[in-house]
Write a protein that binds this DNA or RNA. Structure first.
Lengths: 359, 359
DNA sequence: AATTAGCACTCAGAAGGTGAGAGTGCCAAC
DNA sequence: GTTGGCACTCTCACCTTCTGAGTGCTAATT
């Protein structure tokens, strides 16, 4: 059965109202909203049919109607109007980006914080795993027993580690090691760093003390970390303000699910579209999310950095507002990350330096 | 008025019971516990006096008694028996340490997670701000427009940043810059890096393109970050399982207070003792913590890395158990951090390397 | 044929009333 | 100093009642 235009209007009205009140919506309030010039009786009939069709649900006879997941789905796909950001909101987002080019993980959690405070829902920020390789490797000699290993990865992130040895090494060896490493260990994937490769490198630079092993371990560790992806959750406590999570048990279930970050890493892979993705209630695989919805936006910069920023809330969620905000954030993030190599960064640093001198 | 031994015993019994049940304790249950060979009437009289003395409180006439903050204070200071860890608990802690020597911030949040899961309360991990200086500075030349700045701080942490320039620089300049930096910028505090110093360094290496400024900005930024301290909160959702936080508003208040990490950084400075510190209810300065208690343990390693690990819970908290666990964790952490320069780290890396080869 | 007014019916939740039980304070007896 | 006993208090759980929002259906109206 086709869903008539009038039904659509009514469904939209029901959902809009339910989103703001969190209370079952009755036929009368729709009639009085002035959206349609119909009596409550007519609307009642329509709502009854929408219920039969599965777009609405009734908590109990003689209560108003509540949108079903199917209803939300239609709403999200076709009915809701794409909301635009207010100037203030856009500005808040831009300012937060302007801050500085922090380390990636800081940036991520900062962006999560932003999304959460803007939407008033808990936010998750995921860095998608990227199969990186080492593009450059250096050892900095500190003293006989100590040096710093620095690895730059193909995704332009730089990692370091201070290494102490139980014996001392001469600077020449460090130099040699560094160059052997740069020829043998760059551009290859983590699992290509095999004992065979390591021992051949050991021979190449005459290392008998396991120095190569230490450096290789660092390389493997670094690549492993980059390939893992990370999840940050921010603003989980906001759940408690929502009427659907007044029950501490429900709130606890969802919050502890969210804070075991491992779980969330399951989300990313699905979905391709460049746009927002909405998962409504039972569309979520995880049992803990069955009564909640998730709105996700993907961002990516130059194929190397990919990530997801998302918001978790009750199925009754302000989808259109949340989507608009996430979309804006994700776009900004994509832009920021792909222009990181442009002059802007430099200018900013200089300006920052100037400020410091003043106080 | 002196508090008699018998009163002490009764107070202890009341608190012990209240800690486990979270319900006001009546004279009868104390009498029946068999701890004292007294009738409930006598205990009633004693409890009445304890109430007058301010160690106990009565939610309303004809309810049992509840310990007051003053009562908890006495309990923590004198009455509770120092609990020892079970073998399993000690083992869990040790295993978690064994993991690996992660980057400091990862380690911290990991330790917070550990404390939280062990105590079943939310945990906070603070890295105390340390006035660090740069002990070594290097620039790694990547290509004309790109190099990596690496700074090792006096607290042995190493930081890096990838710097892109809008113009190209020759390797010689990078070299010169690096050595000028090492002589002029090491061993000094953040606020000593003044425009005067910068321009003199610029002259010293013939830099006309602001390269020194960029590097100095990185240095300042790095020192600033190190001197800020960071706070991680883990397991906040556990609050919701406690009867005193069944009220979502209360839970929300505390949780959002905790998650605005800035607040917590206020905690550290007070208190000197090397041992556990307990802040009971109103002893906390922050209004949001007035109904909660905080147990803190300090750890430090070689004067350079200092931190706090703590647990937040209701005033009715298993102080003795929590204290024992925190003490153990803090000791382990101190040990781990100060032996980081010892051979162990090296051995572990080698072993790890071996494992990798096998699969 | 679609819409509407009207009406009986349903049901959750608020309001109020009652009783049980846990606990107290105090007194008189031991 | 300790105890048994007793009257008293107060919360909480439970029940009942009542109210009102909302429904579904039918008959009248457009």
């Amino acid at each position: 059965m086709e869903i008539s235009d009038r039904k659509r209007t009514i469904l939209t009205a029901v959902i809009d109202e339910y989103i703001t009140t969190a209370e079952p919506v009755g036929s009368r309030s729709i009639a009085e909203s002035g959206l349609l010039d119909l009596s409550s009786a007519t609307i009642r009939n329509e709502m009854a049919e929408l219920t039969v069709m599965g777009y609405l649900e009734q908590p109990h006879t003689s209560a108003g109607r509540v949108p079903s997941p199917k209803g939300y789905r239609l709403y999200v796909n076709e009915l809701m109007d794409r909301q635009r950001l207010s100037l203030e909101e856009a500005q808040a987002i831009n300012e937060s980006f302007d801050l500085k080019m922090k380390k990636l993980d800081k940036l991520m959690s900062e962006v999560g914080r932003l999304a959460s405070s803007l939407t008033q829902y808990p936010a998750v920020a995921l860095a998608a795993p990227v199969a990186a390789t080492i593009s450059r490797f250096d050892l900095i000699y500190v003293d006989g027993n100590t040096f710093i290993a620095v690895a730059m990865l193909s995704n332009s992130s730089v990692h370091n580690k201070l290494i102490h040895l139980p014996f001392s090494v001469d600077p020449g060896m460090v130099q040699r090691l560094s160059s052997v490493f740069n020829t043998n260990f760059t551009g290859i994937a983590e699992d290509k760093i095999t004992p065979v490769l390591i021992s051949s490198a050991e021979r190449a630079c005459g290392d008998t003390m396991g120095l190569v092993s230490v450096a290789a371990a660092f390389a493997i560790d670094t690549l492993g970390k980059a390939g893992q992806g990370e999840a940050y959750v921010t603003g989980a406590s906001r759940l408690l303000r929502l009427p659907e999570f007044r029950d501490p048990d429900k709130a606890h279930e969802l919050m502890s699910y969210l804070s075991e970050n491992g779980h969330l890493l399951g989300l990313p892979e699905s979905g391709e579209s460049d746009d927002i993705q909405v998962l409504i209630g039972p569309e979520n695989v995880a049992r803990e999310l069955k009564d909640s919805s998730v709105v996700l936006a993907r961002y990516n910069a130059g194929d190397n950095i990919k990530g997801i920023i998302g918001v978790v809330g009750p199925t009754r969620m302000d989808y259109s507002g949340v989507a608009a905000k996430l979309r804006y954030i994700a776009e900004g993030l994509s832009r920021l990350l792909s222009t990181q190599e442009a002059p802007r960064g430099f200018e900013k640093l200089q300006i920052k330096e100037m400020n410091i001198g003043e106080h």
